[in-house]
């Protein structure tokens, strides 16, 4: 309260200026320190409305720009596939790109077949993994976001819960799997449970951080207007916390997708993680390679989808 200064303070760079980590490195770094990482607070310059296309850009120049954008990634892929082909030639049991592509085509020509509980198409496997992630993650959001608000708003709750969270957060969610198995007495809810555990920390911590970082200016506006607690939450707290919340959501969906593969390997059933393990037992290495690509692509799509939503709520700063 005593810090309320109306002027001469720097304008707090709030969550409205979050820049989304775009490069792979940043994303990976963010995942590693997932729960505490808030989006970097760099001040992205406000994007001006699209400038009129410069008449001077010739067709050739635009082609050049296109090539510069597309060529390096293509080269990267070509390099890795070449390396892979080379390694596969030297090894007897490592399938090459051609063989893997063949296998992928047969696999994806019938993704939704069902031959009993342990032999289903890859489509079913992906979907059931996604379903577990969605449930575990959804419940985590329902619990974690309100908890984050409470921790952020009340210093008492913060000091009460912070030590507990600090101890539990670094624990691999897989360590909770046996507890899930014991409580739920089934594999399926147990792996959903591990997703819940790994998703909840980033949501709690990012939401709490967002609440604590609501700019004092906005709170002063609320105080001068004497807004009701309901209005403070809907008009001030929620909108200014939203970008932080979305960061938490994005981080937790990333980890959730990492964890589900491992959890399913341990529990079995239907799911992309179990499928990988099953194909290993069948010695179908090309399927494992396909699974690696599929897992990567699904993770990327999830991440990009959430980034898209986050941009939508960044109040015109990018």
């Amino acid at each position: 309260m005593s810090t309320a200064t109306l002027t001469s303070g720097l304008v707090t760079v709030g969550p409205d200026t979050q820049a989304a980590p775009d490069t792979r490195d940043e994303v990976i770094a963010a995942k590693q320190e997932a729960p505490m990482a808030a989006a970097p607070l760099t001040h992205a310059p406000a994007a001006e409305p699209a400038e009129p296309a410069e008449p001077s850009t010739s067709f050739g120049e635009r082609c050049g720009a296109f090539l510069r954008a597309v060529l390096p990634p293509l080269l990267g892929f070509a390099f890795i596939i070449g390396l892979w082909a080379l390694v596969a030639m030297k090894s007897s049991d490592f399938p090459g790109p051609a063989k893997t592509l063949d296998a992928a085509i047969t696999l994806f020509s019938d993704p939704f077949y069902q031959n009993g509980p342990n032999d289903q198409g890859i489509g079913w496997n992906i979907l059931s993994s996604l379903k577990r992630v969605a449930i575990g993650f959804g419940v985590a959001a329902l619990v974690g976001i309100p908890m984050g608000f409470i921790i952020g708003r009340f210093a008492f709750m913060n000091s009460m819960l912070e030590p507990i969270i600090s101890i539990l957060r670094p624990v691999s969610p897989l360590a909770w799997l046996p507890i899930g198995l014991m409580v739920f007495k089934a594999a399926d809810p147990a792996s959903t449970w591990t997703i819940f555990i790994c998703s909840i920390w980033p949501m709690i911590l990012n939401t709490a951080q967002g609440v604590q970082r609501v700019p004092q200016d906005y709170l002063n506006v609320a105080r001068v207007l004497n807004l009701s607690e309901f209005k403070i939450i809907t008009k001030i707290l929620f909108p200014s916390v939203l970008p932080y919340m979305l960061t938490g959501i994005r981080l937790s969906i990333g980890t959730a997708w990492l964890v589900i593969v491992a959890a399913e390997m341990l529990t079995g059933g239907v799911g992309i993680g179990f499928w990988v393990w099953d194909e290993w037992n069948n010695l179908k290495v090309e399927h494992i390679i396909i699974a690696i690509f599929v897992i990567g692509i699904v993770g990327l799509v999830l991440e990009q989808f959430l980034l898209l939503i986050a941009r939508r709520f960044s109040y015109g700063n990018n």
Partner: peptide
Amino acid sequence: FQNHSLLP
């Protein structure tokens, strides 16, 4: 407020 403090 000096910095206008409009809700963005």
